[in-house]
Design a protein around this nucleic acid. Structure first.
Lengths: 241, 241
DNA sequence: CTTATATGTGTACGCCATCCACAAGCACGA
DNA sequence: TCGTGCTTGTGGATGGCGTACACATATAAG
């Protein structure tokens, strides 16, 4: 009767069952509570009821474990966004749908950052070697990572004729930057400690402005050349290597 | 003939001269090269030619030293922005000046992030206790921190009538978020390794969109209530406590 | 049943932050 | 002038961390 407790508790068997998973779970808990810095090999193994070195049979280094936690955190973010997308009101108007989608992505993003700052920080923490995959191929229930979810929302803008196709990639940068930057401002920066009502206000306001940013340049912009060149370079969000 | 070498080298005097400054300098160098993680008490004291514990006479903890480095990094960012603002073309048109100011701030911001990723990361790294001052009172040559410089640019928008006054604070969030988010995308995220020409394109495009975001809502937005409420909460950038 | 392989253990090293007691320089009053 | 005491640097120690190496044990393969 070999018990197979994957997580926690001092097992009596020499073999653990699924130490890799147990370590990952412990790492996720640590990241939730204390961000990437708190994810430590020794503490994770301690929680798994195992000696520190055992971890090296499953992860090449502390950073390898942390990378796994990063991926999990990113997946959790994707799930949060998907959850927000799921409650979109049914509509036939593609323009309404597009706007609602973008707002859902932004709302899910910021909500997650506020609800799980440790995981959020971990998801975007810098790996020891900057080489590894920047973004995992798939994540979340739909198999899309957060950037792909945002991209899908912008595709709806294009389809609805609200966004010129050649401006799509730049729009993705704007939307991502704005929402990500706002999240950071709220959890670390000067907007820390905002009430959730105030957060909602700020977020709605930001999303309004992003939408305006996506729209056609109003003819009330007399200055400068007719918008800088639009041949924007690489496509993000498809992972690396 | 007591020599007063503030930095580096093994002094022959028992007293150091200005160890606090030497440690700070060493810490800045470390942050430049390796980000906040590389700022270590032992290495800093080693470079100052002093025993590790000597640091505690000047900084209460490693995080205290790091906090000093953070402030210095933020000041360096402010200086970079000011440098960009200094080369604004002379003009009488307040609208042109406002737009140019915003672009200068954004450009200086992103340029600094690209040129000094270690310092940039350090400037926005999370302190051990989130309590301390989020943003120092003053920094840079003009005594303004980066957020105040951005605020000044937006004030010019308001003065030029390009931005409704009640939308100013929200605009600050948008602009800051967008520029900060883009910087992170470039130095850590999926836009890493972009050539400087491509970076310029992306940045210009982003700034175009931000400007559009600031402008009056085009009447081509049929949906939703006439923009969410505008009573946005706290004023950032004035430090904490 | 033997043997190989996968997985957990033990011991050890070096790096780190930090605490304590001590010593050396300097500053200032008797 | 000579202490006396404060400031600042030193020495030694503790405990946590990542990690490398040799070893033990449980399971799988023959």
């Amino acid at each position: 009767m070999s018990q197979k407790k994957a997580t926690t508790a001092k097992r009596s068997t020499y073999r653990h069952g699924d130490l890799a998973r147990a370590l990952l779970d412990a790492g996720i808990d640590l990241a939730r509570a204390g961000g990437p810095q708190a994810v430590t090999l020794r503490e994770a193994t301690r929680r798994a009821g195992v000696v520190p070195n055992a971890a090296y049979r499953h992860y090449a280094s502390r950073d390898a474990l942390l990378q796994a936690v990063r991926s999990a955190a990113l997946a959790a973010l994707a799930v949060a966004i998907e959850g927000q997308l799921a409650r979109l009101p049914a509509t036939d108007d593609p323009a309404v749908l597009a706007r609602a989608s973008l707002r859902a992505v932004g709302t899910g993003y910021v909500k997650f950052a506020c609800a799980e700052p440790g995981l959020f920080r971990t998801a975007f923490s810098v790996p020891d070697q900057l080489q590894g995959a920047a973004v995992p191929e798939k994540a979340g229930n739909t198999g899309l990572n957060p950037f792909q979810l945002l991209g899908a929302a912008l595709d709806r803008f294009v389809d609805a004729g609200l966004l010129p196709r050649q401006r799509r990639l730049g729009a993705e940068y704007l939307a991502w930057s704005a929402v990500h930057g706002l999240s950071m401002l709220i959890i670390d920066g000067p907007l820390r400690g905002l009430g959730s009502n105030q957060r909602k206000l700020v977020l709605q306001n930001l999303l309004d402005m992003v939408e305006r940013g996506l729209s056609e340049p109003a003819r009330s912009l007399p200055n400068q050349a007719p918008a800088s060149a639009e041949n924007l370079p690489p496509d993000p969000g498809r992972g690396t290597v």
